[in-house]
Design a protein around this nucleic acid. Structure first.
Lengths: 208, 208
DNA sequence: TGGCTTTTTTACCATTTGGTCAAGTTACGA
DNA sequence: TCGTAACTTGACCAAATGGTAAAAAAGCCA
């Protein structure tokens, strides 16, 4: 798949290519996550990236492709914490670690979280296939693992899918609804409190 | 405030006024919740409402006003379940009932939930004041109540604000991320499972 | 029915916006 | 250093979109 064949499609990304594509994607993440796909304009992205609009269209075939590129790149890193759960580990600790990793991602990458949330809220028009082919198998696999832990009596009985949904919901909430949380918790250390609360929540739920 | 004064601003909404304003708001809810504020077009709303675009602008001064009207109307009903918690009731049951009411709202009014989510994700540009003046006092009041229950030992110790956040997050997730949940749970009765799961989750968390 | 008000529509407008194109300009290997 | 390929830009477009104006139509009431 590495070219060398005559009609290879991807010759080789030059240094400038890599630098500018990255700039564009960084800018697009900022703008898309803040204004949504339709709310964002190429001019905004261009300005944020420090490039001209036609120049941006030199690197990407259109607004759509930038967005799709972002979503695809995101999907993988977004699911990493779930993949990192060790089936051989101590169940309760593994799951709590997963919660904390997800919460940490919300703090470190709120823009990515909002980009994702936006896409899903609008019916996932550009991610339908990925949900089916990437997310679903991973969820099923995780569900089986958790069911196994339940069957062995190592954690209290729970529906594994809804458990995962609730972990997603409670952790991403702090990124996606940051504007609201900010207003309601001004002064408090939000993530400190969230971390302690979620630890308690899932420990009480899952302790056999 | 009921007019009768000479320079009264609101003469009286005619039958046609009421009917058409309702049609427009219904249509706008549908369109805004699906495409977001900037993603929605007046033509879409007009078409959905069965009216012409200029006719819509006869009833509302602009796209913005329609959106704001929706958000304001929504805010109240959205917070009703929280207001309905009875400080004199049995704490655990009151809170569980709150969870179920919120979940029920997610099922019955997913469009409203998404409209709200959209607004917050984008930084609440049209709701900032309301969050401060309506939501925050209500949250504080509820927090005091819950803290009281904790102090009396009637529920297990929890941070009341994060508890409420997690209830919002876990219940609204089923509306806001419906597209994702749908794909991942095809075949299953989602709300049946969610209801049972959340019952378990918060019962285990809160039981003293 | 006649006359007034309310409602609706037809025809436009100005701006925004995604995208194109051809003419530069720059980088880089021979 | 020179030529070619890679990159950048200014000038444009066509379509979409929020919004307006004025005339036409529909209600409504005496």
């Amino acid at each position: 798949m590495q070219d060398s064949s005559p009609a290879a499609e991807t010759p080789k990304p030059s240094r400038i290519q890599r630098r500018n594509r990255k700039r564009i994607l960084d800018a697009a993440l900022e703008v898309f996550s803040q204004y949504g796909f339709r709310g964002a304009t190429l001019d905004q992205i261009a300005s944020e990236a420090g490039l001209s609009k036609p120049n941006i269209l030199y690197y990407f075939s259109g607004k759509e492709e930038i967005h799709v590129t972002l979503l695809n790149a995101l999907m993988d890193t977004w699911l990493d914490p779930l993949r990192e759960i060790d089936p051989e580990g101590e169940p309760l600790e593994e799951l709590l670690q997963y919660v904390h990793r997800k919460l940490e991602m919300s703090r470190e990458f709120p823009r990515e979280s909002r980009l994702f949330a936006n896409e899903i809220i609008h019916g996932a028009p550009r991610m339908g296939p990925d949900l089916e082919t990437v997310l679903k198998p991973l969820l099923e696999q995780s569900a089986v693992m958790i069911d196994g832990w339940v069957a062995e009596g190592r954690i209290a009985p729970v529906d594994p899918r809804h458990l995962i949904f609730s972990i997603w919901a409670t952790t991403q909430h702090y990124a996606d609804f940051e504007a609201q949380v900010q207003v309601l918790m001004e002064g408090h250390d939000v993530h400190e409190g969230a971390s302690a609360y979620l630890e308690t929540l899932y420990r009480r739920l899952l302790t056999p």
